[in-house]
């Protein structure tokens, strides 16, 4: 089992009380799976992603990645896990505006200590695989939203992580660019990458092999009836 969540709770302080954003979430994801998670805004989707990506620590419950718990891990260890095991794709791409596409893509390898020459060669290759050959030196501001998101995917995948976490990857894109992104996800999944994707759009969720639903911090395999309206 690649990902295993057991009774994960996450509380945030809200005024004097604690707000339970994730409520006893159980989730198992096997290698090679492609899971979409849907839910209304404020239901805890991003929070779940942050826990899955070791950007945030659960309040209680166990999270095993590849059978390993990182509850006690140091800041540097977590940085290493994020760097090597997980690829992140965000709704707003989060590219560094002053860096070329190539340098943006190569960034995770810099943190992994890969020599510059190899870094850049692999970045070019990764850009090619998302159809951006020839845009190596382009600044993000000169690229369309769809292209930016493809650069972000190249960056997420350059260290060849097993797990790709995508938080509304098409949320800021038109349908054509969105479906291009989904094509890339399909390819990645076909090559063996495990994908967990959050989305609002049923059409996008349908591209995944499996869909789950979250509401008020509770994750279920079935959609609640009132949401179908």
């Amino acid at each position: 089992m690649l990902v295993e969540l057991k009774k994960i709770c996450k509380d945030y302080p809200q005024g004097k009380e604690m707000l339970r954003v994730l409520n006893e979430v159980d989730l198992s994801v096997e290698e090679g799976e492609y899971l979409a998670i849907m839910g209304p805004s404020g239901s805890g989707k991003t929070t779940l992603m942050n826990v899955l990506g070791f950007l945030d620590l659960q309040t209680s419950g166990d999270y095993l990645l590849n059978g390993v718990s990182y509850v006690e891990a140091s800041d540097n260890d977590l940085a290493k896990v994020r760097n090597e095991e997980i690829g992140f794709v965000f709704q707003n791409y989060y590219l560094l505006p002053k860096m070329s596409a190539r340098d943006n893509v190569a960034l995770p390898l810099l943190y992994a200590g890969v020599p510059k020459k190899e870094r850049l060669a692999r970045a070019d290759e990764a850009l090619k695989s998302v159809g951006l050959e020839g845009f190596e030196h382009a600044l993000p501001s000169t690229l369309s939203g769809g292209m930016c998101q493809r650069v972000a995917i190249a960056r997420a995948m350059i260290a060849k992580p097993k797990l790709l976490l995508a938080d509304e990857p098409t949320g800021a894109l038109d349908t054509v660019s969105g479906s291009q992104i989904m094509d890339i996800f399909d390819e990645l999944n076909a090559e063996g990458t495990t994908i967990i994707m959050i989305t609002h759009e049923p059409a996008i969720a349908k591209r995944a092999k499996k869909t789950m639903y979250i509401r008020d911090g509770i994750l279920t395999a079935e959609r609640k009836e009132e949401e179908e309206l």
């Binding site: 950007l55 800041d75 540097n76 940085a79 760097n83 992140f88 989060y94 960034l107 995770p108 960056r155």
Partner: peptide, 16 residues
């Protein structure tokens, strides 16, 4: 802040 957050998210250590 965003730049720093992103860098940390994709694996930059504190020391960096």
């Amino acid at each position: 802040t965003r730049e720093i957050g992103l860098k940390k998210a994709i694996g930059a250590r504190r020391s960096r």
